[in-house]
Design a protein around this nucleic acid. Structure first.
Lengths: 214, 214
DNA sequence: ATCTATCGGAATGAATCACTCCGATAAAGA
DNA sequence: TCTTTATCGGAGTGATTCATTCCGATAGAT
């Protein structure tokens, strides 16, 4: 029988692999795009290819699972950020950092190539509402530039989720660039308004529903 | 015989294609990575595949040419920025904008997969010197944060060169995010220092000399 | 009317990919 | 100790994709 806490032997290996496999998939798909070969995930995880297929029936299923986990992580982060004390900018910055850390939004390259499940749609809409609230509050308390929209923040997360962090040096660089961008979110005297028009959700989410097929 | 100015007919088409082909290659490799198929370039350019092979002997040769053109564009931009009047931040911001516009630095994904020519090495070193000067001056006049290095700027350009601009909406988003990041370069009271350590050139350029082969 | 430069894209052979199958390994239980 | 069972890694497979070549078509130029 399985022990309640910390199983042993083969079962422990399987549990370890559960995490290993998911983390490797996140990293590789984030950095190389959804077109990355399954063998690349296996190499990074240090396991055989079959270890992936024992857990997920297909590459598409794995991608769907990753998308859903991303959105759930993003929702949890947004809730915490909204509940946190402190000024609006700090809340937004903390939220963005956590999302980038978890590589939320790194799967844009899968848009149009995998089916969108009902769960994904629901999570996406909840996430959107929470982000609107978070950014709205930050604008209201004056610590974030007033022309910033929640969707700008989404795109920002998406962009930084993709940057490579495989080596210490790359992770270091990534952290510096993110710090720069986050400082750019602050309200401030010397700033000009953001150029162009606020992005729209239609375009942002529409990517997922129209396949890339000719 | 060919007329001096504006050739006609087939020759004009060939010249038009010269530009079309190069621009399509820049865009596709920037957005999809160096692994993009040649057919994708042809589709975007609206020409046949052979039109590429009539101009460049191989994919590798095309990538080398693009790299060199990128670096030359970057050098020209840096020279203009250094010569320009105005404060240091504006010079750096203008430089970055122009580089991102030209997709300089979007070929990082080709690193390790193509041979580095002597011309490329030389251009890279000159570019580096000019950027050090540009950023050094901007730091000195107090309009840019003092912990910013030239290499941070290089990585910034690289990151933004990859963002998709295929539709008006995506170009718009890209412009907004870049504006945010550029504002983050400014010196300012409320800022904390950039985290981590300054990136080093060894790592930055080293990517090109060690193939991805196992 | 013929020549010639250039074109587009089908054809080709090599390489890569998603996914399956199976022999090996080691924990658990008799 | 010996068998059972869960899990493992990676070679094997058929389908797909890619870089590159080749050739018939097209339209200026002469």
């Amino acid at each position: 029988m399985a022990r309640r806490e910390s199983r042993r032997g083969r079962q422990a290996e399987a549990e370890r692999n559960d995490r290993l496999v998911l983390e490797a998939a996140r990293t590789v798909f984030a950095e190389q795009g959804a077109g990355a070969p399954m063998s690349a995930l296996a190499d990074l995880a240090g396991v055989g290819i079959a270890t992936f297929y024992r857990r997920y029936g297909s590459k598409e299923e794995l991608l769907q699972r990753l998308c859903l986990l991303s959105m759930e992580e993003s929702i949890a982060s947004a809730r915490e950020a909204i509940a946190a004390e402190g000024d609006g900018w700090s809340a937004v910055a903390g939220f963005v950092r956590r999302c980038v850390d978890a590589r939320v939004g790194s799967l844009g390259s899968a848009a149009g190539t995998i089916a969108v499940t009902a769960e994904m749609t629901a999570a996406s809409e909840l996430g959107r509402r929470l982000m609107e609230e978070l950014v709205g509050r930050a604008r209201a308390d004056g610590t974030v530039r007033t022309d910033l929209t929640a969707l700008d923040v989404s795109y920002l997360i998406e962009q930084f989720s993709r940057s490579p962090r495989g080596t210490e040096e790359r992770a270091n660089v990534s952290g510096r660039l993110l710090a720069l961008a986050l400082d750019g979110l602050r309200s401030g005297a010397r700033r000009e308004d953001l150029p162009g028009t606020p992005p729209d959700w239609e375009t942002y989410s529409g990517r997922w529903y129209h396949a890339d097929i000719d």
